[in-house]
Nucleic acid binder design. Sequence first.
DNA 1: ACTTGGCACTCTGGGTGCCGGAGTGCCAAG
DNA 2: CTTGGCACTCCGGCACCCAGAGTGCCAAGT
Lengths: 333, 333
Amino acid sequence: MLEERRLDVLRAIVEGFVLTNEPVGSRAVAERRQLRVSPATVRNDMAALEEEGYIVQPHTSAGRVPTDKGYRLFVDRLSTVKPMSVAERKAIETFLEGAVDLDDVVRRSVRLLAQLTRQVAVVQYPTLSRAEVRHVEVVAMTATRLLLVLITDRGRVEQRVVELSEPIADDDVSDLRRILGGALHGCRLVDVPAAVSELPDTCAPHLRRMLSGLVAVVLEVLVERPEERVILAGTANLTRSTLDFPHTLRPVLEALEEQVVLLRLLGSSNEPDTVTVRIGAENDVEGLQTTSIVSADYGFGGVGVLGPTRMDYPANIAAVRAVARYVGELLGP
Amino acid sequence: MLEERRLDVLRAIVEGFVLTNEPVGSRAVAERRQLRVSPATVRNDMAALEEEGYIVQPHTSAGRVPTDKGYRLFVDRLSTVKPMSVAERKAIETFLEGAVDLDDVVRRSVRLLAQLTRQVAVVQYPTLSRAEVRHVEVVAMTATRLLLVLITDRGRVEQRVVELSEPIADDDVSDLRRILGGALHGCRLVDVPAAVSELPDTCAPHLRRMLSGLVAVVLEVLVERPEERVILAGTANLTRSTLDFPHTLRPVLEALEEQVVLLRLLGSSNEPDTVTVRIGAENDVEGLQTTSIVSADYGFGGVGVLGPTRMDYPANIAAVRAVARYVGELLGP
DNA sequence: ACTTGGCACTCTGGGTGCCGGAGTGCCAAG
DNA sequence: CTTGGCACTCCGGCACCCAGAGTGCCAAGT
């Protein structure tokens, strides 16, 4: 069914439409050199492609526009990833290596990605799940309020306030710190529950209640609430071509404010070094069904870009992959 | 010049325009009960108001629209702050009191404010400047890389990686921790420079270089880089009435991505319990000259909302003030 | 000295009709 | 299977007109 030339026609339509943002007609397609056929022939192919749902025409006597299905085929079989230029690679590198801490790395990456792709960029903070506890700190804020701080080996810091039912003495705070620290230091996150669950039973009686409170918070912070945060940049890019989102910009912005939604989108990029592309209605997320998402995993979280389905997939895939790699390297060791 | 009735006319125009988003004509104004005059009279007043720059007409034979100057007069002299309903106050309270930590307070406030006002909301993280150091922690990540963590009395945690030129022994890390901790514990932020500047000179010689490195970072984190962060919510509200931002949405979104810009906007709300309103071109910020900002200080930072100049000032002022108060209370003691 | 009704004027926005151009589908010939 | 030709459709822009809204001004009224 899908002969070579038909695919060429589809490719020409996708590339043309991405470039001009206008429906592509048979003549324009035929004028591409590689295709040495007449517009009439192209029309026949187009009719077939439309029949099979890869393209549509907005109205009779307009050119053709790719459907989600058409983009899908294009991405899967017709596009070759544009390699990034040396200059671009260099730019990525210098841009990211100036980062001073974890926050900075994440913020720089997301801005970088937004700039490279001219789309909305999303970067997830490194997830805790594979991290190791480097240090535990217990600080008394007031007599009945403790601050619990957990530091992981990747420089991530989690903090949480714990309210106590009764005042605590300074010495006891030190004890708690020592006990928790001893149990958790160097502990991998997955092993934390086992390491702390028995603690309250083995410590001095007067500390028992407080310690179990702290343990509960530790578990909540590290295990139950794997508070995954994402940040984004480049939302202004959504307005670049007003034509892409006639009056659907609203729901897109709304969806972007939902951290949970974004996490779901990034989350399903599974293996590192694999770029996932979700096109239009393939996103079951309300409001994002006119957008495409290109995402990848950097090892401890995801990065991605979001834009109109009419986007330059090869370029965006390349950029997302490159940034994911650099970030992964940067945060790895 | 500004007789009573003329001001009434201006008030009617502002209120009418905010309500309908359409230029207000003389008849509409005259039909407000309080004004017992004919449209013709109103027209005379309007001509005068236009003469003085409070209103303009988009084109001949259209109604009048307030100018920035008109809104300014309205805000300064004509509006009475709408008190918040009991239900609203209650809602604020219950919404905010569920917060578990500092991050949570900030995030909840910003969402709340966006919801209440249906505008873009901005909330600044509590600034460090009036805080006190509660605890200092030095953790070895690798032999040549330390993580410096500073905890303030308001639960804010600042962290920073420090690269060392030579490996450090565990014992030395403990020493550094003790020295820094002793010097800084309970220290008010403004006093930090004095407290640490002499430290390197008085400590053991082999620690001197590292300690001065750490001291430099402490100063940078706490003093030179008063890294003020803001977060925002409700950007989707900008699209509510497409009419407000015909094609000027772009620069607004761009400006909102600049933390520095937002900080400047919030920063100049000086005293607590005073609400600042900046209208249209009063904002010297590029791209925000078609927007208004209503902001207030909660004691350790600012909160505010941003929207089209055509906004319901009384309601927004009330909301911003209320949220600022609650947040201030929540973070105060 | 203000207020008011009347009146002529201006401008927008929507509706209609018309045309050129782009693009198509189909058909018959190569 | 490909191709040129041809009739057809539809959009987009343009001109035009008209009703409606709103104004500014003037002269009369209080």
